[in-house]
Simulated scan of single mutants.
Amino acid sequence: MFEILAAAGAAAGEAPPAWINWLPIIGMVVIFWFLIIRPQMKRTKEHQAKISGLKKGDQVVTQGGLVGKIAKVDDTYVEVDIAKDTRVKVVKHTIGDIIPPGGSAAND
């Protein structure tokens, strides 16, 4: 009987396997992936799809807060009418959002 208790005590005193020490770090990486990295990649993909679909006449809001109507679209730049006879050239990827039709008009 003492031999069984001694064997159980010796087994309990051994250190856990080395891979168990990495479980908290792996768990944090998984949590960061699902809570931070994956949603950000999804938002980036949606924004790129929105930017690639820009066309003349769309009402947009830039990341700087300018609201206007697209007058011309290039590969890199977009010309936006922000007021009567006022047109600015904006880098395409700084367009924050597209105002859906029926929203408040930018320069009517």
Rank of each mutant, 00 (worst) to 15 (best):
A71K: 13
L54T: 07
Y77H: 11
D58C: 01
I37L: 13
G64A: 12
K55E: 08
K69H: 01
I36D: 09
H93W: 09
T44P: 00
Q59S: 05
V60R: 00
I25K: 06
P39H: 09
G68S: 03
I82W: 02
W33S: 12
V60A: 01
G103F: 08
D97T: 14
G53R: 14
T76Y: 11
K42H: 06
W33Q: 15
F32N: 08
D97C: 02
T76V: 15
G103C: 09
I51A: 03
G64R: 13
K69F: 01
L35K: 15
H47N: 07
Q40C: 02
G102C: 09
G27M: 04
G96W: 14
E46A: 15
L23E: 05
L66N: 04
K56T: 13
V60H: 00
K69N: 07
V73I: 11
G102H: 11
I36H: 05
R43A: 06
Q48L: 14
I99E: 03
I70D: 00
D85N: 14
K84D: 05
I51T: 08
F32A: 15
Q63R: 12
K50P: 00
D74E: 09
K50Q: 14
R43T: 06
Y77W: 13
G96M: 13
I25S: 06
F34G: 12
G102D: 09
K89W: 02
K42M: 06
G27Q: 03
V91L: 12
E46P: 00
A83D: 11
H47G: 02
R38Y: 09
G103D: 10
